[in-house]
Structure formats: C-alpha cells, structure tokens
Design a protein around this nucleic acid. Sequence first.
DNA 1: GCCTCCATGTCGGGT
DNA 2: ACCCGACGTGGAGGC
Lengths: 252, 252
Amino acid sequence: MTVTSVHDPSHREALWELEDAFERGDLISVFGRCTVSYEGRAASDLGAGDRLLVLKPDGAALVHTDEGRQPVNWQPPGSEHRAAVREGRLRVRSTRSNPDETLTVRFAAVDQLSAMAVTGGRDLTLHGSEEDLRTRILERPDLVEPGFEPRETERPSSAGPMDVFGVDADGTPVVVELKRRRVGPDAVGQLARYVRALREELGIEANDGETGDADSPEVRGILVAPSVTDRAAERLAERGFDHVALEPTPEE
Amino acid sequence: MTVTSVHDPSHREALWELEDAFERGDLISVFGRCTVSYEGRAASDLGAGDRLLVLKPDGAALVHTDEGRQPVNWQPPGSEHRAAVREGRLRVRSTRSNPDETLTVRFAAVDQLSAMAVTGGRDLTLHGSEEDLRTRILERPDLVEPGFEPRETERPSSAGPMDVFGVDADGTPVVVELKRRRVGPDAVGQLARYVRALREELGIEANDGETGDADSPEVRGILVAPSVTDRAAERLAERGFDHVALEPTPEE
DNA sequence: GCCTCCATGTCGGGT
DNA sequence: ACCCGACGTGGAGGC
C-alpha cells in the first residue's frame, strides 16, 4: 500500500496530486479552508471554514467538519469527481445524474492532501439485526408464545411481504412483525396493513377494533420488539394486537 | 490553521501524535491497515484491510473504506477517544455510554496520520426541505386547492403534530401532510393517523373508506408531495384522501 | 430522558 | 429503473 501526501501544496500542485489519485483510484483525504455548495435534490451553501474532504474511487464525496457523524455536505457513490483551478483556487466538483446533483468544493487553501490505494477486507459481519431476530424466532417459536407455529417468512401480501406468517395454538392465522429496537406507532401501522391484507385475502370481515369487535379477530397480529412506546402500545390495544418483548440477540 | 502530519510512523510515534491531537481538539485522519470491531446496540467485526479512520473532537469516529457514503463502522458524537499500543499494534478505541458502545480499531500499520485544528463556517443554508414546502403553502394556500385556508401548523393531536391544519372552501376541516419528495404508503398511514385522531377529537364517526362511506368524510386528508407511488395512490383512494402534486420549491 | 418525525437520509433486495 | 422497508439509521425539537 502506498500513500501519497503533500503538505501546504499550491493549488496547482494539489490539482496534479488529485488528478493522479483519481487516475490510480485512491481514497483521498484533503484538509483545507473551503466553501461548499450543493445543488440537486435540494440546494445548500456553506461559507468558508476548515474542513475535511474525503473523495472515494466509487464516486462518493464527503465534506466533514469537526462535529457530527454526518458529513455537512456529500455526494453519493456513482458520482464523478473532477478537479480544476479556477480563479486561483482549487475547485473540486462531484456530479452525478439521476437525479442531477452537483457538489462543489472551492478551496481557499489546501493544508494537507493524502491519497492511498486501499485493498481488501470488505467482509463485515454484523450480529443483532432484524434477521437475527427472525432466526431466533424460527428456532424457538415459543418465544413468541406457546404453541406458535411459523409457516412462512416474507410471505407476500397485497400490502407487501410480512416478516413471519404462522398459526397460533388454536390454529388462528398470525402475522408477526419484527423490529430490532424499540418501536413507535409506525410499526403498528405496518402490522395493521399486513393483517388487513391477510383478512381481505382470507375473506374475513375487517376488524380494526374501532368499528368492529376486537375480541375475536380471525387474523391475529403480533409485534415482536424489545419494547414499544406508549402511543404504539395504545394503537396495538386499539387494533387488538399483541406485543412480545424480545431482543434480537439473547441477553448475555 | 496548523496541520500536523506524519508519514509511516511507528506505532509509538502515531500514539504520541494522536494523544497530542486529542489534546488540541484536532480533526484527525488516519490511513492504515486495520481491523475493526464494534460492540453495543449490535456487534460487528471487520477483517484486516486498508481504511481511513476519522476522529473528531466531539467524539465522533468514522471508519471509511473505499466504497459507500456510509462509514463501515463508526461511533456517534459524545464518545471518548483513547489510543494505546497493545501487542505491538496501535489500538484506537472510542467508547460511550447510554447506550454502552465500543468501537475498536487495531492498526497493523499506520501509513499516514494528519491532524488539523478546524474553525469556523458552520452556517449551512439549505433550500428545498419540507419546511420550504410548508412556507410555500402558507404563502399560497391556493396551491393546495382553491379556497383552502390554513389555520395552524404543527397542530397537536393524539397521533402527534400534523403538518398543516385548515379548512376547505366548504369549511370542512382538512389535515395536510407534507412530503418533500415522492412518497410511499407510509406517508398515507401517517396522514390517516392524523385524520383519525382529529375525527375522534371532533366526535366524528370513523370513516376509513372500508367500513364506511368514503364520499363524505367530515375530516379531509390531503397529501402534498411531488408524486406518490402506485400503492400509495391506492391507499389514498381507499381512505378517500387527496393528493396534490407540489414541489418544495417552484420549478425554475 | 422519552417520544415524534424529518432527512439531499443511505442501502440492499425484489420486481 | 422504481418500489419498498431496514438501519448500530442520525439529528432536531418538544415535553
């Protein structure tokens, strides 16, 4: 692995290094005082300040300040980077189409430019996702409730694929919606759409707990999540749905 | 503005520079071959590879590969960075509590380390957000429909604050939901929650287009967005809601 | 601190 | 290409 690095380059030197780095497909880091403007899905302007510009060979561009996890400005992967010296300043511009978007960074001064060819190690293993939660439930259906029997995952419906479809101890159809973390009312709405779709499909009268009788729904809805907000709990109760408190991975 | 920069430092040199940079409150960029592990809300491991580590004085840590807008691993602002040499390798660890999370980056080799004190220019101006759309509608309510009269923004309800509340030409209450871009079914669900909440509040019979009569709802719902997906359009029709095609900023 | 919702969300998978 | 939903979503604002 080789790193190219220049300190306090002139704009023209910086331009050369950038163009070489683009050519090599390097991952690039630029420190300097700059202004940033963006035009595309929205539009923004950012006054002069010291920032870190990261340029990736896949077309991604990130402008970072000293604060925040998020870049203050950026361009998604698939964009094309170009550099030029305009009006005595280094201008880096990243553009893409569909949608048409342009990010322009104008440097008053470049303090440090580094570029590195990066290789290997894209194999991230992640544990604790919603898929882990699904796996956990399929292996131990009793964690949902005794007698629960999963029949299908990603079962299609007119409202989209439901996470887990199954039957309870009484043989009543059950739609299970999985969330890896504490959830709000939106998840209940999602579950409700699946239940409604399944009721329609099975020719069962709608029964949403408001106009009908919530005590004997012919299709049950269960929300599996570590916890739910108060408002979500209300909506679960309205609809006659159940909540099962479960983490994506067993507590250690 | 001063930049500190070292090329191919030993682990111990890198450690000194890092600790100085932490002390100064610098924005730091480190190129090198490393492994990354995370434990907290979830858990992940990433094998050896060349990456860019960004450390911010506010506690944010970002590990970037050559691809993607998102860091492959990260730590949110508010974390604490520490560095050490362990087993002959530079180890950078960023931790926070609530929730307890730890990000550990172990460098087999550091190729380039730069640090800069950054100042100024946090004044980002953004146009084209949902707020712009709201402003646009409040200034020209006829863009929603002739005779529409906004009464309140962020009007509270049991389902949360609705974007715009008003009345139409007939004096019928209207809930307006704003979206800055093309929307799917989730936005319709959100609108439906507000409309339902308002109907309950006003003591009007629920009328969701399935069990009742969608032709004369006593509370109307209007979704203002540039466009809607087919499924969203279906759900709008089911509920008896309207869609108004409008961009957050006027077409140029 | 919890809750709610916006975001230039990003990203991956399906059709 | 669009649609859809998950994400260690992040971030702001209210209570």
